[in-house]
Design a protein around this nucleic acid. Structure first.
Length: 455
RNA sequence: GGCGGGUUGGCGGAGAGGUUACGCAGCGGAUUGCAAAUCCGUGUAGACCGGUUCGAUUCCGGUACCCGCCUCCA
């Protein structure tokens, strides 16, 4: 069996991955807070962990991998959005989840095994909070319940900092009822205008971090294999998750391998909503970039390096994808085998860039079946239905062009051929003429409407 | 201020202590009615300063610069 090696943020080292149970490999990835369209930065972990999901399924079997990615559908940002739009919270979260599915599907990502919503697990959160109080790791005060960071000596291990370090230059919320300024909220009171659930501490709502601890525990158990998310979640979100889960279930160990993807950047700065320098996946799709092109651009950069989105990269990816698709279609989409070199590249801490290099070599070797199946492991589907459907009309045009050229070759007057050729090229079709044949191949900008007048 | 990551050729972007990364662009050639595509060939690197080594872009230390986290964030 292939040995997968992963960079574990917990140890800061690349380690051989050995699942707790090879028949039930479990991965949890932090999903979105649903109040707005997903931007490109949100899409990166989705693509990265989808690729890991595919690799795990390839190695351990499709049925042996459980992938959980949550929707956080209770949050003050959602409340604020609902208030300013004059819409109900449920309306906004439903709409946003539908958008999220559309956009992530377009990137060729598989749906996770489970997509739990935080609001469906309030009871489990309350139970976990009660457990933390009972074990002396949390305390109710003024309608809130707070986690006591000083009660957990390992607090800060994941992000490599101590509570005292953090306090030095920290900007922490001033709350007089906190025992320690770093203590964070597990539960907070809701007034009548806010969503709330009954609890032992009065009507209220959960703090940000507890939902992931409660849902991972419910769906994957107290210990599981992989926990993933964006690097910006490492602190405080993941640190707090570890504190909650490990204090509630001290012997379980919680997640064993922590993976963090680097940020998507725009002009050298992190793409983020607070900086306002973001564009959404939908924006790119609407501009005409296919999801597969966006995915290919993402896979070209290793997940632990920052990635810049540029039009030039998208154009290159588009051309490359088109070449691969042509190769696969030339051979009628025949099936092949997944290339071991592609697998071993992915198994080496998800080296997608190297895997793509290998894919390019397979393309050069004209091994269409292997190209198709290996690309699919990376979530790239090289069977393009639209292009397939375009073939018949292009066939007729190719014959017309061939006939016209036949005449021109004897008369030495090429003006008619050249005009026809230019028109075909203007529709985004590549014209390939050899002495014996004429081939028309639709390119990335192929527009069938422009060919109507040429028939 | 604390903690972490990075700096590779025109651009993007990997691996490896010694032998070509790769792609795009460029240049030369084959091919073509002209092209396109394809094929062949080819130049340009490793921020800076030290150290270890027979040999470092690759390991170690320092300097500079960039980025991220420490506040909502993927």
């Amino acid at each position: 069996m292939v040995t997968i090696r992963l960079h574990n943020s917990l140890t800061r080292k690349k380690e051989a991955f050995t699942p707790l149970d090879p028949a039930d490999v479990r991965m949890y990835v932090c999903g979105p807070t649903v109040y707005d369209r997903a931007h490109l930065g949100n899409a990166r972990p989705v693509v990265v962990f989808d690729t890991l999901f595919r690799l795990l399924r390839h190695v351990y079997g499709d049925k042996a991998v459980t992938y959980v990615r949550n929707f956080t559908d209770v949050d003050d940002k959602i409340n604020a959005r609902a208030a300013e739009a004059g819409r109900s919270i449920g309306e906004i979260t439903e709409e946003t989840i539908a958008w999220y599915h559309q956009d992530m599907d377009a990137l060729g990502t598989l749906r996770p095994t489970h997509e739990p919503r935080a609001t469906g697990y309030i009871a489990q959160m309350i139970a976990m909070i009660e457990r933390l109080i009972a074990r002396g790791h949390a305390y109710p005060v003024a309608g809130h319940v707070l986690f006591d960071v000083r009660s957990y000596p390992a607090y800060g291990r994941l992000s490599g900092r101590s509570v005292d370090d953090m306090l030095a230059g920290a900007r922490v919320e001033v709350a007089p009822f906190k025992r320690d300024p770093m203590d964070f909220v597990l539960w907070k009171p809701s007034d009548a205008s806010l969503p709330g659930w009954p609890s032992p501490w009065g009507r209220g709502r959960p703090g940000w971090h507890i939902e992931c601890s409660a849902m991972s525990h419910e769906l994957l158990g107290a210990s599981f294999d992989i926990h993933g998310g964006g690097l910006d979640l490492q602190f405080p979100h993941h640190e707090n998750e570890i504190a909650q889960s490990c204090c509630a279930f001290p012997d379980a160990g919680f997640a064993r391998y922590w993976l963090h993807n680097e940020m998507v950047q725009v002009e050298g700065k992190k793409m983020s909503k607070s900086l306002g320098n973001f564009f959404t996946v939908r924006d790119l799709l609407d501009q005409g970039w296919p999801g597969a092109v966006i995915r290919l651009v993402m896979l070209q950069t290793h997940y632990r390096s920052p990635m810049d989105w540029t039009e030039e990269k998208a154009r290159e990816a588009s051309v490359r994808l088109q070449k691969w698709r042509q190769r696969v279609q030339e051979r009628g989409g025949e099936k092949g085998v997944v290339d071991p070199g592609v697998v071993s590249a992915l198994a080496d801490d998800l080296n997608t860039s190297l895997a793509l290099t290998r894919l390019h070599a397979i393309w050069r070797d004209k091994d269409a079946g292997r190209l198709r199946d290996s690309a699919y492991l990376l979530g790239l589907d090289l069977i393009d239905q639209e292009v397939h459907q375009a073939q018949p009309c292009l066939g007729a045009l190719a014959e017309k062009l061939a006939a016209t050229r036949e005449i021109a070759l004897s008369t030495k007057d090429f003006s008619t051929v050249d005009a026809l050729k230019r028109a075909i090229m203007a529709a985004g079709v590549e014209v390939r003429m050899s002495r014996t044949e004429v081939k028309l191949v639709p390119g990335p900008d192929f527009d069938p409407a422009k060919l109507e007048t040429l028939k």
